[in-house]
């Protein structure tokens, strides 16, 4: 087929140099091509790509792995919170009947979810069931144990701040000798968790900036390698958007696949830990298992990776284009 300038033989006028009307089809096609081109470039240099993806994966895995661990600890501490019991050791003058009256009164309190009376005799039975105590208890002529009421605070009262007030209130009851709760321990755990979460956020920001810079720098190098191509594209009428597009997609792919690497690292790490955790949980009579990233966590990780990648690439390309001007 011979090349014909048929349309120009009659109309030989320069079409106006105006920006053409936006055309969704042209736009979509251009994006699709940019995605293909950037994928092809990634596959074209498998070793370089894998190295960069591994680096991004590690940088993303560190903060997100820490979040997963913290979430697990929080889950564990929630399980403990539900078991938060306040032990009310009754004065020795309070007999079973008076104790039952107190139990009935306490049962009416909204702040308590559960009230359970352990009489001195029941306490003795409990203890004697535990190996090693039978003999020790035999040394006593009388039952040395006081009456005990175990109360479980309602959900609303489980917070460390509320617990303190509740214990104080219970302590004031005339029948109660000592109201006991290891408050300090619960408080400390909660503030430790709070601190770790703050630390994890700081770490996340830190590593996110690292990923942003890594991708920015990688794209910067890619641009340097493709300078000639960019020049030629400009010569034959490529817009800045056209030049930018494949690099943005490349940054996005780096971030996205890097995040997949990170998810893989975290999963492997959890698998490695889980055997030990299950063993430990069995010893504590608990069915506790480690929780993974979860779908929402994975989604968030992939999204952050992609967004960081696009942002890093954007910085690099715009820097180059501004210099080129």
């Amino acid at each position: 087929m011979k090349y014909q300038f048929s349309s120009q033989t009659t109309v030989n006028k320069l079409p106006s140099i105006n920006i053409p009307q936006p055309d969704i089809r042209v736009y979509a096609l251009s994006h699709w091509r940019a995605l293909l081109v950037s994928l092809r470039r990634l596959i074209h240099m498998p070793l370089e790509s894998l190295t960069i993806l591994a680096v991004i994966g590690i940088a993303l895995a560190l903060p997100s792995g820490l979040f997963v661990l913290l979430q697990n600890i929080q889950k564990l501490s929630l399980a403990w919170d539900q078991q938060t019991k306040i032990s009310l050791f009754l004065k020795s003058t309070v007999d079973d009947a008076a104790a039952m009256q107190l139990v009935n009164r306490l049962n009416l309190e909204n702040s308590l979810a559960q009230v359970n009376y352990v009489s001195p005799q029941q306490g003795l039975d409990r203890l004697s069931k535990q190996v090693g105590f039978t003999q020790a208890l035999g040394q006593f002529n009388d039952n040395p144990l006081p009456g005990l009421i175990e109360v479980v605070p309602s959900k609303a009262m489980q917070l460390p701040e509320a617990l303190g007030g509740l214990v104080e209130q219970l302590q004031k009851l005339p029948e109660v000798d000592v109201a006991q709760l290891d408050m300090a321990w619960v408080k400390r755990l909660h503030s430790l968790l709070k601190l770790s979460k703050k630390g994890a956020y700081a770490l996340a920001i830190f590593f996110a900036s690292a990923v942003f810079l890594i991708i920015g720098n990688t794209i910067h190098l890619a641009i340097q390698n493709q300078r000639r191509e960019i020049e030629v594209i400009k010569l034959v009428g490529g817009t800045y958007a056209f030049i930018r597009r494949p690099f943005l997609y490349r940054g996005m792919l780096y971030g996205f696949f890097g995040a997949i690497f990170a998810a893989l690292f975290i999963t492997l790490g959890l698998l490695w830990l889980s055997d030990t955790v299950v063993e430990l949980a069995v010893e504590y009579n608990s069915a506790y298992t480690l929780a993974g990233l979860g779908w929402s966590g994975l989604g968030l990780l992939l999204l952050s990776g992609a967004v960081l990648g696009v942002a890093g690439a954007w910085l690099a390309v715009n820097h180059y284009l501004r210099l080129a001007d």
Partner: peptide, 16 residues
């Protein structure tokens, strides 16, 4: 007077 963003379209209408 041609704005910079129109330059690519100018170049599409001439072969060089």
């Amino acid at each position: 007077l041609l704005p910079d963003k129109k330059i690519p379209y100018l170049r599409r209408f001439m072969g060089v």
